[in-house]
């Protein structure tokens, strides 16, 4: 490993965070505390917490001996990281080339009209968050969107309305 391993600060030295991040030990498990661990640690934090609350950014910064602004700067550079809690349901709309050509924008607009929130936002009741992605990589199924784990291909405005209706009445 080329990067120098820094001495790790004791976790007990850190001020008690509020609210406490329970899976903290899980977040840093297996990492050496190198600068190059920053992105993977943030990824782990997000996968456990659902998003990056300010407290997580703070603790990661202290753990890696970086300033919070540095960590925040890196985190905001990458599209993967979110700083607000996700909704209970997660809608991803693909706006890649193939989906654009086949009407992906209309899917996004339909979602906006129905849920009242746009890409990068979460509905006020915390039910849905909406994300637009550049390509889900199943272009043969365009236009594509995902609702939680389910992939819905060859969508149309009407099919999407049907899916949202079914969800609403479920």
């Amino acid at each position: 490993m080329a990067a120098v391993t820094r001495p790790q600060p004791e976790l007990d030295d850190l001020p008690a965070s509020s609210p406490p991040i329970d899976p903290w030990a899980q977040i840093v498990q297996g990492f050496d505390g190198n600068r190059s661990d920053l992105v993977p640690v943030l990824q782990r934090a997000q996968s456990l917490l659902g998003y990056l609350p300010p407290d997580a950014v703070r603790r990661v910064a202290r753990w890696l001996r970086l300033s919070e602004s540095e960590v925040f700067g890196v985190a905001t550079f990458y599209a993967q990281f979110r700083f607000t809690p996700p909704g209970r349901h997660h809608v991803r709309i693909c706006l890649g080339t193939a989906c654009h050509v086949k009407g992906g924008v209309q899917m996004l607009e339909t979602i906006q009209r129905r849920l009242g929130v746009g890409a990068g936002e979460t509905t006020a009741d915390g039910e849905y968050d909406v994300e637009r992605v550049a390509c889900l990589g199943c272009c043969a199924l365009a236009p594509v969107l995902t609702l939680d784990e389910a992939i819905h291909g060859q969508m149309s405005v009407l099919k999407l309305q049907g899916i949202l209706d079914a969800e609403a009445s479920a």
Binding site: L38, V39, Y78, Q80
Partner: peptide, 26 residues
């Protein structure tokens, strides 16, 4: 194995290396 965090510019080699190093992928 490093998982990219979603920045198109990281396909550029110097940006990609910056990203592996834990910096903004520029």
């Amino acid at each position: 194995i490093t998982e990219g965090a979603g920045a198109f510019v990281c396909g550029e080699e110097t940006a990609l290396m910056a990203s592996i190093e834990g910096r903004r992928g520029m």
